[in-house]
Design a protein around this nucleic acid. Sequence first.
DNA 1: CTGAAAGCGCTTACAG
DNA 2: CTGAAAGCGCTTACAG
Lengths: 344, 344
Amino acid sequence: MRSSRSTPTLDDVAKKAGVSTATVSRCINTPERVVEATRKRVNRAIDSLGYTPNFGARVMAAKRTFTIGAIIPTMENAIFARGLQAFQEELHNSGYTLLVSSSAYDPKIEEEQIKALISRGADGLLLIGYDRAPAIYRYLERQAAPALIAWAYAPNNPLPAIGFDNRAAMIRLFDKVWEMGHRRIAVISANVLGNDRAAERLEGIRDALLARGLPPETIRVIETPYGFDTGETAMRELMSTDVTPTLVMCGNDVLAAGAMRGARALGLDVPRDVSITGFDDIELAQVLHPPLTTMHVPHREMGRRAAAMLIALVEGTAPQPAVDLPVTLQMRDSLAPPRANCPP
Amino acid sequence: MRSSRSTPTLDDVAKKAGVSTATVSRCINTPERVVEATRKRVNRAIDSLGYTPNFGARVMAAKRTFTIGAIIPTMENAIFARGLQAFQEELHNSGYTLLVSSSAYDPKIEEEQIKALISRGADGLLLIGYDRAPAIYRYLERQAAPALIAWAYAPNNPLPAIGFDNRAAMIRLFDKVWEMGHRRIAVISANVLGNDRAAERLEGIRDALLARGLPPETIRVIETPYGFDTGETAMRELMSTDVTPTLVMCGNDVLAAGAMRGARALGLDVPRDVSITGFDDIELAQVLHPPLTTMHVPHREMGRRAAAMLIALVEGTAPQPAVDLPVTLQMRDSLAPPRANCPP
DNA sequence: CTGAAAGCGCTTACAG
DNA sequence: CTGAAAGCGCTTACAG
């Protein structure tokens, strides 16, 4: 019945090599338990047939896939790329394969992807941020596969996580610009719905205002989808009022890059006419002109450690506590004191 | 034996709902063939148990995974991100799930990833470029899963492919800059080994020179790994000779962005002191200052059509011929006639 | 060191 | 419309 088109099976190999399927299986998985002569014969049969184990069958029989799944909000603009690359490298070193899919910032799609990965036998999952429907966590709870939250750290969230405190980081940045003298500040934020990183960053700014006895309405906030174009549009809008901000704080580097383009299109010089800050410190930040002042996130370290943590979770060793990575303020030329903004 | 930790099976659902496993299976796969009352009961059982089908078992029984795998050289810098996003959207619309992994431009890793995806039951594969070991093609040949080559189109390559003629595109760009009067031209190319896109682009420039009776040595070529930093380093090197080029053609936008940063670091104005061109037209090109002149590649269309083609291959309908997508020269401010370069 | 056989969790003709 | 049962391709005690 086996058509020449269909892939060879363990059985085909066993027949060709004149051994049992058990022996072939051992040659593949525990070669040290098979004598050399047999092993050679089997390997020859494997090669000549071009045999690859059927993963499904293997998973079903062995209950283990050595596959880790990651679901990121977007593959564009490399926000997650660097961290993910390190994540993959580390997994690869430990014999795991990474499969990634993107949700396009859509919770529905993310849920589908989670289920797809789980049902495809992923041993563990990497998820970005913790803001998702409780039902998903309940679902995850029932699966054999653990999930690790990355890119976010919330002091009182019980889930295994590795990330950084987005809110505290933004407070730090705000304190800095305030100290520099900025008072007319505007914000371009990514959509906060379902995006705790964006939400926390925005909250950070509000906290910082409150700490100074100022109501949140003090500053104008434009919330917009993620992208260069949206960043530019928001910037144009912010700068078209009668009292323009001396500083525009952006929720991430991509929006900031768009804002910078917008400023240029309006004939404004950054930072002379208006300062701009970002968040993430992706490579882009240093390619912009002027280079972007932003919060540096240790992408590669996060990726590497996420891999180690997730493997530990999967293999059931020492349950690690959530980790809060330090971020650092990266001063570059897009931020300057406001006096520079005000023509004498 | 079923521990509370292990996931529920079809059998558990069947028992809970008081039906056979066949009926549960139908409720999931062909609900229209089950009466409403039964279906409801089954669905309730599914929900309360938090049941997800075991993919391995399903694949094994059904011989179909509705999974497409893609292996890209890198996730960084969004070169492939846009196309891949469109690819994924289109697949999603047709009920397929995309799983991607990156090879970090390493043929060994790519081979592993290919096997991992195939053995995980991918119905089809998307591969970037056609330059890989014959053994891999032989392996692929024997699998039930078809592969589609994207991002490249070679007139006489027999493999199913969708892309564009990198060489012809570069010739076109060269013709243009030549016509503008550039004669002192240098090139920053990505490593060509195992990267036919880079190789073809470089060949295009050589062809263009040959067509003018000039030996390839006429122009200086620096071959370098992919990245902003490497682009900057190459640029610094090119501009540190006594006779500097009036134009630096880069193999892709990322290298070009690095080159622009390098020019700036040297105190050079682009395009007054030196012109720079890229290739790909990723979003980055329009965020740079000055905006980058580059070859526009129809990323989204390529992704969309790649999905359609691959699905057709997987489902065995009309074998499509390789498609050669048009690329268009995108003139922006980073390129100007050389007279601007030469102080009077 | 090797083999026979049960079992992993599904799907799908085949009956009814 | 529903069920009993074979079969998908592996792994792994259990014997020998």
